[in-house]
């Protein structure tokens, strides 16, 4: 029973990590109506920036973490300036395809710049797990979970209650209408990418803390994708619930079902949940329903 509860808690915390990465998707979508397929690559770029500033340059963590976040923001801004500003008002297809192009472009660039070597990642959160009776909870995931909840509450307040957040919501609704109302679509998209890139870097820190870093870590982007869709792409608060559900489902499948069938069903469970929810409710749990006119 203790192990069962422990599995649930660990699963929920991993789910919250997915939710943090998924928050990158949602923030970019929520402020620009672009679905960013290259989210996993942003995570890996964030990871390499942190690695570079701590291990390579040798800064202390207190200095390197803020610096990394600033650099990650700059990368996000640069990507937006080079690729996405020019596509404002173009079709959804163009935008999606550009981010698909970015996915392989960034993956290739990371490989060219850093090579396929495995690198040690700095220990940002204490390695020693937290013991609760017989249960053991990884410290990085616990702190990460708290960060995720705080970020979700903060961002959800920002997008739903503040003036500038609502402006961005209008951009997500319709680029042309928003710009004719005097809202800067460019500014909104730039902000979204900076924020998305910073969130990805935080995700990278939690995910990789004390582990090793290779370009394959970007797979977390695809692991987080079902969470974003399950919650509905417009809802930031919903990510927490969706993340916990998917994380727990995955953890239970990996620990109890997989030994029985002798396979790794756990890795596809999030996708099966995602497909099921898309069929029943295409907008996810908390997404907006839109009415279409011809």
């Amino acid at each position: 029973m203790v192990y069962f509860i422990n599995d649930i808690i660990t699963g929920a915390l991993i789910g919250l990590l997915y939710a943090l990465v998924a928050m990158g998707f949602v923030v970019i979508y929520r402020a620009s109506k672009v679905f960013n397929f290259a989210q996993g690559e942003l995570v890996i770029i964030g990871g390499f920036i942190v690695w570079f500033t701590t291990m390579q340059v040798g800064l202390s963590l207190w200095l390197s973490i803020p610096l990394s976040l600033v650099l990650a923001g700059l990368v996000g801004y640069a990507i937006e300036r080079i690729f996405l500003t020019k596509l404002i008002g173009e079709s959804v297809f163009s935008m999606v395809m550009v981010t698909v192009g970015l996915l392989i472009l960034l993956r290739g660039l990371v490989l060219l710049l850093f090579g396929p070597a495995v690198r040690p990642f700095p220990i940002i959160f204490p390695l020693k797990p937290l013991f609760l009776g017989d249960m053991l909870i990884p410290m990085n995931l616990l702190i990460g979970g708290i960060i995720t909840v705080v970020a979700a509450v903060g961002l959800s307040w920002f997008f739903n209650r503040t003036r500038s957040g609502l402006r961005m919501t209008a951009v997500a609704e319709d680029h042309v209408v928003a710009s004719s109302m005097g809202i800067s679509v460019k500014g909104s998209i730039a902000f979204a990418w900076i924020l998305g890139s910073i969130l990805s870097t935080i995700g990278a820190m939690i995910f990789l803390s004390g582990k090793s870093l290779t370009f394959l870590a970007s797979d977390i982007g695809f692991a987080a994708l079902p969470v974003a869709l399950f919650a509905g792409l417009e809802s930031i608060g919903g990510l927490i619930l969706a993340g916990v559900i998917i994380g727990v489902a995955q953890s239970l499948t990996t620990n109890y079902l997989d030994p029985m069938i002798g396979g790794s069903l756990g890795s596809v469970v999030p996708y099966i949940i995602m497909l099921a929810i898309l069929l029943v409710r295409p907008t996810g749990l908390f997404g907006w329903r839109t009415i279409e006119r011809v």
């Binding site: 690729f83 020019k86 596509l87 173009e90 163009s94 395809m97 550009v98 698909v100 192009g101 970015l102 996915l103 392989i104 472009l105 960034l106 993956r107 290739g108 660039l109 490989l111 060219l112 090579g115 396929p116 070597a117």
Partner: peptide
Amino acid sequence: SFLGGDIVFAGMNVILGGVIALFMILEP
């Protein structure tokens, strides 16, 4: 030399990713 055999895969990704993005921006 530090890249080894991965340069083909990496170069391919960079060029194709760039080609997709450029075509979507300039000649959709």
